[in-house]
Amino acid sequence: MIHPTAQIDPAARIGENVRIGAYCVVGAEVEIGDGTVLASHVVIDGPTRIGRDCRIHAFAAIGGEPQDKKYAGERVTLEIGDRNTIREYVTINRGTGNGGGVTRVGDDNWLLAYTHIAHDCQVGNHCVFSNNATLAGHVTVGDHVILSGFAGVHQFCRIGAHAFIGMGAFVNGDVPPFVMVAQEGYGRPRGINAEGLKRRGFSPERIGAIKRAYRALYLSGQPLAEVRAQLAAMADDAPDVKAMLDFIDTAERGLLR
Rank of each mutant, 00 (worst) to 15 (best):
M1T: 11
T5M: 07
T5C: 08
I8P: 01
D9Y: 03
I14F: 04
I20H: 05
Y23I: 08
Y23G: 05
E31W: 08
D34Y: 06
A39F: 15
I44C: 06
I44K: 05
G51R: 05
I62L: 12
I62Y: 06
G63L: 04
G63K: 00
K69M: 14
I80W: 04
G81D: 14
T91N: 08
T91A: 12
N93S: 12
G95F: 08
N98Q: 15
G100M: 08
T103P: 01
T103E: 05
L112I: 15
Y114C: 14
T115R: 01
H116Q: 12
I117G: 06
D120R: 02
C121V: 03
Q122T: 09
G124V: 08
N125C: 13
C127W: 00
T140E: 06
V145G: 07
S148C: 09
F156V: 07
R158A: 10
H162M: 12
V175P: 01
P176W: 06
P177G: 08
F178N: 03
M180K: 11
E184D: 09
G187Y: 00
I192L: 09
I192E: 01
E195K: 08
R199I: 07
K211G: 05
K211M: 14
A213Y: 03
Y214R: 04
A216I: 10
L219T: 01
Q230K: 13
A232H: 07
D236L: 14
D240E: 15
I248N: 06
